[in-house]
């Protein structure tokens, strides 16, 4: 085992442990934690036994193990970009809806209520703010 493998496996092992701990302690959902643990496990195996990736690559008709890893990395990254982009859009959408809600709620001057207030609110008003019409 060369120096790179030792360092990389140490890091990957740490990350694997972290994702397991996160799953157990509830920092991440179980699915998230397990997916990440699986990713780190695969990474670790690929680093420790490069010859295994050659076997898998050969079975898929790709010449070199390094190529297989590269293709997988590109595909996963593209999916990741797309998911982050979609999530950002949803977040943006939620922010807009929240801003709209606040803007309408806090419109100035406060427009007269379009619906009669609910009985409970009316009781509270009469009790605490008798001067209010």
């Amino acid at each position: 085992m060369n120096l790179f493998q030792i360092l990389a496996i140490a890091i990957v092992t740490g990350l694997l442990a972290l994702s397991l701990v996160a799953t157990v302690r509830g920092w991440a959902t179980r699915r998230e934690g397990l997916v990440w643990a699986f990713v780190w496990l695969c990474t670790g195996v690929a680093i420790a036994r490069p010859d295994l990736t050659v076997l898998v690559a050969g079975a898929m008709g790709i010449g070199r193990g390094a190529d297989l890893v590269l293709y997988c990395a590109v595909i996963v990254m593209l999916i990741g970009f797309f998911m982050v982009y979609a999530r950002l859009r949803r977040l943006r959408r939620d922010l807009t809806l929240l801003s709209r809600h606040l803007a309408i709620r806090d419109a100035s001057p406060t427009p007269p209520p379009t619906n009669p207030p609910c009985p409970a609110a009316k009781q509270i008003d009469e009790k605490h703010y008798p001067q209010r019409p």
Binding site: T96, S99, R100, L102, I104, D106
Partner: peptide, 10 residues
């Protein structure tokens, strides 16, 4: 009436 978005939404 004046309504105000707390952040710029477009």
């Amino acid at each position: 009436y004046v309504l105000r978005h707390p952040i710029n939404c477009g």
